[in-house]
Computed example of a mutant assay.
Amino acid sequence: MKDFVNSSDASIHRQTKWIKRFLETYWVVIALHFAAQLYAYLYLPYEIEAGIFYYKVLLGPTLLMGGSVAAAQLVDRFAAKYSFISLFAAGTFVSMVIIHLNMDIRIIGAVMLLPIMASAIFFRLDLTLYTAVLQIVAFCIMYNWDSRFKAFLGPFDLIAIPIFILVGTLVAGIIIVNGRELLYDLETTMTAKQSLMAENATMLKISKTDALTGLFNHMSFHEYYEKALEYGELGVPFHLALIDIDNFKGINDKFGHRTGDLVLSRVACTIQENIPSTDIATRYGGEEFAILLFEQTFEEALCLMEQVRTAFSETRHAELGGLAVTVSIGLKSYERGTTKERLFEDTDALLYTAKRSGKNKVVTPLQTVDEGSAVL
């Protein structure tokens, strides 16, 4: 028998889940049939001896149906590639037993149609056709080997029931085709939506970051700055640091703008490597950078800025003839009630104090840290 399992891992997982659910449903059907037969015997007119009823109608058929379902579960566990075959073979057998015990032309077609309708949930035409063939084979077996079943049917039934099964198969096929189209449309829509989301995320990232340095840009700084001020008003401390590359115009004039861009990129990398991920580093404009520092005391922020400054002054650049690039830094903490303009202006003033007083230093409202180094 051809292996019906030929799909993606996600599809296989879904199918495996539904196979187990159907097998569990078969047990529910058997239990309900057992209860219905017992109730009918005890409380409805039922002209049959107790021994025959319990052996041939209740226990025997229940054990046969349960055995077929248990066998299907074993196949599903130890030979999963044959799970579909065993699943609907067991379902067909259960249908045959129920029809044999409840000979009524009104339920024959409906019971035999149930496995076909159930197979449609997997959206596979080959599986539905296989299940339909099983029902036709089961009908032929019962007609040729079950004398009661054969005697119960009339000539019209021999035509009507197979046609009913075929029509049901056709309906299931239409459901499958339409379901596949809907699934394809849904997947196409989801793919397009994911692509659009990825494009939007890329565009958002581009709009928020500086193309040369990869840091947040001027606009992003003000967005985060506003948020920081809101948290600051709630008592969350933060600090603002402004960094400016010393003698950057001289670098551009002497070594060219390409070398200047390289220096800017390296400065940005040094900043990112030395600050925690909770801090916000931005290229404010030109050779100036702004950093918002969170979750640390002023002393820790000062130590961190000294670490950044030292890292710059100790890095030599081959493109600059082995010279180091230094930076001047202004650092100030936010105090509740301070406006965004006042904090920025005060920090900017500290930065220019550092520039005017010799460069390559960190200046704060509390202290000035002087360091000498080879400067350009």
Rank of each mutant, 00 (worst) to 15 (best):
R180F: 06
K227G: 04
S119Y: 12
D76W: 11
I30R: 06
L166M: 14
G168Q: 09
Y43G: 02
G372S: 08
L44H: 15
E287L: 05
G250S: 12
K361S: 09
V375C: 07
L125K: 14
I136P: 08
V325I: 11
Y46I: 11
S11Q: 15
L59C: 09
E314T: 15
Q272V: 08
T310N: 15
A268F: 10
H218C: 07
A349N: 10
T128Q: 06
Y231P: 03
L240T: 01
M142L: 15
L242E: 01
E319A: 15
Q15R: 13
F122V: 02
S277K: 14
L23K: 00
L262D: 11
M96N: 02
T189Q: 13
I271E: 00
G256Q: 03
L64W: 13
Q296G: 05
I121S: 08
L215C: 06
L64P: 01
W145C: 11
P61A: 04
G60Y: 12
Y26G: 13
P365F: 01
F312S: 02
P365E: 09
I136S: 03
A268V: 04
F4Y: 12
A70R: 00
I176W: 05
H218K: 08
L351G: 00
T131G: 06
V57T: 14
D279C: 10
K193N: 13
I98T: 07
L376P: 01
R316L: 13
L125W: 12
L262E: 13
A281K: 01
A201R: 15
A192M: 12
G173A: 14
L59G: 03
V29D: 02
L350E: 00
V137P: 04
T326E: 04
S86H: 04
P45Q: 14
E306R: 08
V97T: 10
I329A: 01
G321Q: 08
L343E: 01
R21Y: 10
E319R: 00
G286M: 05
I163G: 10
E226Q: 14
A50G: 12
D346Q: 13
V69F: 04
S68Q: 07
I275N: 02
D185G: 12
K56F: 13
R356A: 11
K2M: 09
K254W: 10
L58F: 13
L302I: 01
E273G: 03
G51E: 11
I121H: 07
G322N: 01
I30Y: 05
A281H: 08
V362M: 04
Y55A: 12
